[in-house]
């Protein structure tokens, strides 16, 4: 287990390095930053001045070295647009996105796991088919449109919940549902398949033969084993949700990391964009690493 963990951590560090190079190159190679910052009406001299001011005239490797060294110390430089340090901007916005992500994940799991268990328990009945239909529909729903539709139903027609903003916990309900619904189908299917596998296993048959009540079998024997891979999937889905929250935050005007990223992209504030890409990637890498280690800890067959 220790060898597996060490190797897996080494890979994660390597991936983190590669991702930082990739996110750096993506922004520096897809266009000329100085021209983009200066705007369409700038003269050559102005562009040159901006290039010198932001150190964009140095060789790429030097720029990357300086940026990566600072980033390692959680210093992402100064925003081109705001007077603040990028790190401070991120620190102010990250909690909103994390709150949204956690509630969205909770919504997804609270719907998906019971639905998956029910579907497996009542295999090939209308319950199973309804659960399947819900998950197929979930995969086809454009999340931003689903968010707008939720606003129309619950904020405009029923007037139960606020339209946008992030002042109170009520503001997080609709965006969390819109974001969580997208992760639900995968979790539902995995729970259902895991339950089906466990329910047909020998130890559940033994438990049945002993005459244990079905509810006890379900919770103490079946669910506990079926839920292990679901936890790992949930970690990965949480990472995807943080990345995908940009669309939902735009719909609900939540002042989180995604909204900041969207606005920063629109005003060519590259230090902020780069820092957000990097932070989200690092969170994802850490989550997948944790999921892999957890899975390997619980299932020795995976330690190959």
């Amino acid at each position: 287990m220790l060898r597996f963990a060490l190797r897996r951590i080494l890979v994660a560090v390597g991936v983190a390095l590669t991702v930082s190079v990739a996110s750096f190159l993506l922004l520096h190679l897809s266009g000329d930053l100085a021209t983009a910052i200066a705007g369409p009406e700038a003269t050559g001299a102005q562009i040159a001045a901006i290039r010198a001011q932001h150190g964009l005239d140095r060789p790429l490797a030097v720029q990357f070295g300086a940026w990566a060294w600072q980033a390692l110390h959680l210093d992402f430089g100064r925003s081109f647009y705001f007077p603040e340090q990028v790190t401070d901007l991120l620190a102010a916005r990250l909690p909103v996105t994390l709150t949204l992500g956690v509630i969205a994940l909770a919504v997804a799991l609270l719907v998906a796991i019971p639905l998956g268990v029910l579907a497996a328990f009542h295999r090939d009945t209308w319950i199973d088919r309804t659960a399947l239909a819900v998950s197929v529909l979930g995969q086809a729903m454009p999340s931003f449109w689903f968010g707008l539709t939720l606003i129309l139903i619950f904020s405009v027609n029923l007037r139960w919940l606020p339209v946008s903003g992030n002042a109170t916990w009520k503001h997080f309900i609709l965006p969390a549902v819109a974001l969580g619904y997208y992760a639900m189908p995968a979790v539902m299917r995995l729970t259902r398949n895991g339950m089906l596998e466990v329910l047909s296993s020998d130890y559940v048959r033994t438990a049945r033969a002993k005459g244990l009540p079905p509810r006890k079998i379900l919770i103490r024997h079946a669910l506990r084993n079926a839920v292990i891979p679901v936890i790992a999937l949930a970690a990965v889905q949480f990472g995807f949700m943080l990345g995908g929250s940009i669309v939902i935050e735009a719909v609900f005007s939540l002042q989180g990391l995604g909204q900041l990223a969207w606005e920063s992209i629109a005003r060519n504030d590259f230090p902020v964009v780069q820092a957000i890409v990097l932070v989200l990637a690092m969170i994802y890498i850490a989550l997948t690493l944790a999921a892999d280690l957890l899975n390997a800890l619980l299932d020795p067959r995976l330690r190959a």
């Binding site: 983190a16 995908g244 969207w262 890409v277």
Partner: peptide, 13 residues
Amino acid sequence: TRLALPVVLVALA
């Protein structure tokens, strides 16, 4: 490595 990059954000940028 590709999976670690947030798709929507990178595509937007």
